[in-house]
Design a protein around this nucleic acid. Sequence first.
DNA 1: CATGAATGAGCCTTCATTCAT
DNA 2: TATGAATGAAGGCTCATTCAT
Lengths: 202, 202, 202, 202
Amino acid sequence: MAPLNEDQLENIRNERKIQIMRAALKVFAANGFKLTKISLIAKEAGISHGLVYHYFKSKEEVLHESLEWAMELNETKKYLNELSEMAISPLEKIHNFTKFALSSSKYESSDIFRIIQHLEHTEDVPSHILEFTKNVGMMYVEFFIPIFIEGQEAGEIIQENPEELVGLFLTIISGVMADDPDYWHENMDHKISIFLRMITTR
Amino acid sequence: MAPLNEDQLENIRNERKIQIMRAALKVFAANGFKLTKISLIAKEAGISHGLVYHYFKSKEEVLHESLEWAMELNETKKYLNELSEMAISPLEKIHNFTKFALSSSKYESSDIFRIIQHLEHTEDVPSHILEFTKNVGMMYVEFFIPIFIEGQEAGEIIQENPEELVGLFLTIISGVMADDPDYWHENMDHKISIFLRMITTR
Amino acid sequence: MAPLNEDQLENIRNERKIQIMRAALKVFAANGFKLTKISLIAKEAGISHGLVYHYFKSKEEVLHESLEWAMELNETKKYLNELSEMAISPLEKIHNFTKFALSSSKYESSDIFRIIQHLEHTEDVPSHILEFTKNVGMMYVEFFIPIFIEGQEAGEIIQENPEELVGLFLTIISGVMADDPDYWHENMDHKISIFLRMITTR
Amino acid sequence: MAPLNEDQLENIRNERKIQIMRAALKVFAANGFKLTKISLIAKEAGISHGLVYHYFKSKEEVLHESLEWAMELNETKKYLNELSEMAISPLEKIHNFTKFALSSSKYESSDIFRIIQHLEHTEDVPSHILEFTKNVGMMYVEFFIPIFIEGQEAGEIIQENPEELVGLFLTIISGVMADDPDYWHENMDHKISIFLRMITTR
DNA sequence: CATGAATGAGCCTTCATTCAT
DNA sequence: TATGAATGAAGGCTCATTCAT
């Protein structure tokens, strides 16, 4: 019989890669890079460990490609774009984002967050991955600074150095996300409101 | 030379254990349980890795005993006691504590925090250690609830469910501690002030 | 289009096998058995690695059949036949052969040589392959003994036990072939002449 | 009880390293670098595979250090020195050397030869090892050129470019050593005499 | 008590081989 | 017949743990 045609193969390849990357993001997020066993990713993806190496040439590359895929595809980016165009106040945007960030695992987004957390506390991260993490961090900072400024102009946000404020905000968010995402699920809006009091005028 | 008497031997033994545990706390805090190599603890303690096994029967026991020792000895407990008797307002106490928590490694205290963070995100933690972590968490909660209530009575702290407030406060603190302790060093008081706005009245 | 008839199919099948075997000989010669990857043979043959297993049931069989094919087909045998009928002196025949042996890869012949070299230094070679190598060796010995005797009778070759002489000659040739075929390309005739002084009368 | 004193430890370490390197030379010589399993070296040395990594940080380093040790210690070097001072004719020196080279495994020397043979036919040899092999080859060339010239002046050796002659001689020797050292054991002197006819005058 | 030599389980990675299409 | 996806055995290397000295 004739072999599969190219489209079919391409499809399978992509399916599999995505399947693996999805699993990888989950497992990396839970365990960090070093403690993540390829065998676990494979199990999570429902395949043999050998197959992982059919699609990626090393554990490191699984990580890298998974991160890139997740960012590209990225729900977060899309979300940020949508968010910036919503007709709501800056503070509401911030609230909305916080909620998004803390409602883990709905999308891969929070996995990325957690993975980057891990990486930032890890030695010997390969430079191309390190760079990746920096870029992601930068993206958030750059996204929020104008919003914070706007919020300050609108009188919603306290008059402190906006960069410092954004830094503080994101530091705490990311610390908290890496920590216990479950904690937030209950009563989320209320908790977030309290949390955001730290930057609001009243 | 006369042989050492039993007390002296006991002392040496204890010195050594403490030496090891101190090192262990530091290294566990930095790397988590699994990624911590016995050899690193030994190096940090300035002894050979074999010796660790004279004092502890496994890596797990090193962790467990180190945690217990740290809590017993505990700077944190002492510190909390002192804190509760200081003649300062509840809010100032909270500020003071936050500062203490974030000024890492001055005491073993923050190591404990970070270790517990790690453990809480780890699977297969042996039950006796898990229990330990719960107790520590509880201790903080119980310590802070009265202070928060006092603060509410004094009008310094917002009128929300004190347990919820304490929970939120500690969750964030611990998330942030596990994240990037260095971030806070600069301009610490100012950052903490902003952070605490989330619970203060205006 | 009409389907291919059986002969044609058979032909295609044979073409493919030959294509693979030719590639296999080359790659085996370059790397030895164990270090030769099926994927490399496939790439060299311009086919997928899976296809190799349609024609051969294992790597070992690829080796075996390739060797047999090469011997059957055999350029070497043909060459030896031609050689024996050339109207040149025994010594010239030997010179000619040496040249043939050292001018690698023109024919598959030198590949066989090199492969057999490899095999002789390898443990756990399956007996049917081992036997094969012995036969090949034997063939050469039997071919050259009469020529050496003739050379002795003609006074061109020194009066030593011809079997010993042939053994020495072939041992060195094969050692040298396995070693560095490139070395000989430059100035080949001259080098060979010197080399052959070892058996010539003057 | 007190731990071993430094000398004792140093001794054990050295013993073991030598034990491993000796085994390594043997196994590398037999199989080449890639096909040599650390576990085989360990077995040959009568130790566990893990221990190898106590003394060397990688397979590559086992090879490198083993080669360096063998050259340093080196029987060959010593032998060459002695040889150059013997009161025998240049040709006799060459004969003597050939004999030495082919009486394998008496010393590690022939292992080195064989290993270097392997390496020269291998891709991706790390540069520091490659350099090593070059140096060794150079050593022989430089040692023999004056002897060949002397032999030519004494009328024992044919008047050909000495470098070419030495090159040919060493190429064949090394090819042959790598090939079948056993072949030569029987009747060695006689075989060597014939072989050397290739460079001798009549 | 103290050292570090020694062991072996376990993880990453490669590659022969099988199999669905 | 042809492809390449999929599997799993095996080998390099690390590290917790044991043990002789």
